[in-house]
Computed example of a mutant assay.
Amino acid sequence: MPFTLEGTEVVATPAPRLKRDYEIYVSLPADYATSTQRYPVVYVTDAPYAFPLMRAIAGRVDRHGVGLEAFIMVGLSYAKGESGVVSRNRDYTPTERLSERRPGDGVYGQSAAYLDFLAQDVLPLVDRRYRTDPARRVFVGHSYGGLLGVQAMLDRPGLFSHFILGSPSLWFDDEHPVKALRQRKSGQPPMTAKVRFYVGALEQPSRAHPDNEDMVGQTNRYVAALRRQQPSGLDVKATVLDGEDHATVFPRLITQGLVWALPRRK
């Protein structure tokens, strides 16, 4: 018998416009069945890895830590029948990145279409099916998932109220996200979300790893640029987590991010 996570369900989320199918993984609060309240929703990318990990961390922090507000968790899966590499390369990136493509990478640059799918199909489905608070949606993404979150923040103001962005791939396609921020026109709707960036202190060049991307410097510069462009309405901060690299930073940023976004109500 396969192991399953108690209190979770898998919901089909077909994407006919994209000509492929997805699923969402859903975890409801312990008091959902006996309550009439509406709950904030946390959407996390890379669900096969991130959903069970974040669920475990949230439960631990809530029961044995500072406590969290009850929330609905939604994991965003990869396309059915595809590997995570192929699915996330296509869905989480903003450009084709032709000059840097490697064999087996598949297609890049369809994050705008994937964000359409989230906005038009996934989020409305979740709001219809569960007692949600549509004004309180938290986006969580790491690496390419963080890159997708940056694009959602810039191009879809109001879609999410909070962003927890870990080690976003701001280096992608010769720092395309930085160029996109510079090119954002003053007439576009203002960004009004609450945003926290997290990056590991070891995610930068060092004597042991001279070829590392300088993700610490990129993140700090990007946050400074956001503050200059959006002096009001956007609550943004970057935190460098000591002793963490790109592989180890996710559990720690999830812990800090959830405590920040969803503190237990008094």
Score class of each variant (00 low, 15 high):
Pro2His: 04
Thr4Tyr: 13
Gly7Asn: 10
Val11Asn: 10
Pro14Gly: 01
Pro16Tyr: 00
Pro16Ser: 01
Lys19Asn: 12
Lys19Arg: 11
Tyr22Cys: 11
Glu23Tyr: 04
Val26Ile: 07
Ser27Gln: 14
Leu28Phe: 09
Pro29Phe: 11
Ala30Phe: 12
Asp31Pro: 11
Asp31His: 03
Thr34Asn: 14
Ser35Arg: 03
Thr36Ile: 13
Gln37Cys: 13
Tyr39Lys: 04
Val41Asp: 12
Val41Arg: 08
Val44Lys: 06
Val44Leu: 15
Asp46Ile: 08
Pro48Lys: 09
Pro52Glu: 01
Pro52Val: 02
Leu53Gly: 13
Arg63Glu: 15
Arg63Lys: 14
Arg63Ser: 15
His64Pro: 12
Gly65Ser: 01
Val74Gln: 05
Tyr78Thr: 05
Ala79Trp: 02
Glu82Cys: 02
Ser83Lys: 00
Val85His: 07
Val85Gln: 12
Ser87Glu: 11
Ser87Asn: 05
Ser87Gly: 07
Asn89Thr: 10
Thr95Arg: 14
Leu98Cys: 12
Arg102Ser: 10
Pro103Ala: 10
Gly104Tyr: 04
Gly104Arg: 04
Asp105Gly: 01
Val107Phe: 00
Gly109Lys: 08
Gly109Phe: 05
Gly109Ser: 02
Ser111Asp: 00
Tyr114Cys: 05
Leu115Glu: 06
Leu115Lys: 02
Leu115Trp: 03
Leu118Arg: 05
Gln120Met: 13
Val122Gly: 07
Leu123Arg: 10
Pro124Tyr: 06
Asp127Glu: 11
Arg128Thr: 15
Arg128Trp: 10
Arg128Lys: 15
Arg129Trp: 04
Tyr130Thr: 15
Arg131Lys: 03
Arg131Phe: 15
Thr132Arg: 06
Thr132Gly: 10
Asp133Met: 09
Val138Asn: 14
Val140Leu: 06
His142Glu: 09
Gly145Glu: 06
Leu148Lys: 00
Gln151Tyr: 08
Pro157Cys: 07
Pro157Gln: 04
Phe160Cys: 01
Phe160Met: 06
Phe160Arg: 02
His162Cys: 11
Ile164Lys: 08
Gly166Gln: 09
Ser169Leu: 08
Phe172Ile: 00
Glu175Cys: 08
Glu175Asp: 15
Ala180Pro: 05
Leu181Trp: 06
Leu181Cys: 01
Gln183His: 13
Arg184Cys: 02
Gly187Phe: 07
Gly187Trp: 07
Gln188Gly: 10
Pro189Ala: 04
Pro189Tyr: 02
Met191Asn: 10
Lys194Glu: 15
Phe197Gln: 04
Tyr198Asp: 04
Gly200Pro: 01
Leu202Val: 03
Pro205Thr: 00
Ser206Tyr: 02
Ser206Glu: 00
Ala208Asn: 02
Pro210Cys: 01
Asp211Glu: 08
Asn212Lys: 01
Asn212Met: 03
Val216Ala: 00
Gln218Asn: 07
Arg221Trp: 02
Arg221Asp: 09
Tyr222Ile: 03
Ala224Leu: 13
Leu226Ser: 12
Arg227Asn: 11
Gly233Leu: 09
Val240Ser: 00
Val240Gln: 07
Asp242Ala: 14
Glu244Ser: 09
Thr248Gly: 02
Pro251Leu: 04
Pro251Met: 00
Pro251Glu: 07
Leu253Gln: 05
Gln256Met: 13
Gly257Ile: 00
Leu258Thr: 02
Leu262Val: 01
Pro263Trp: 03
Arg265Met: 14
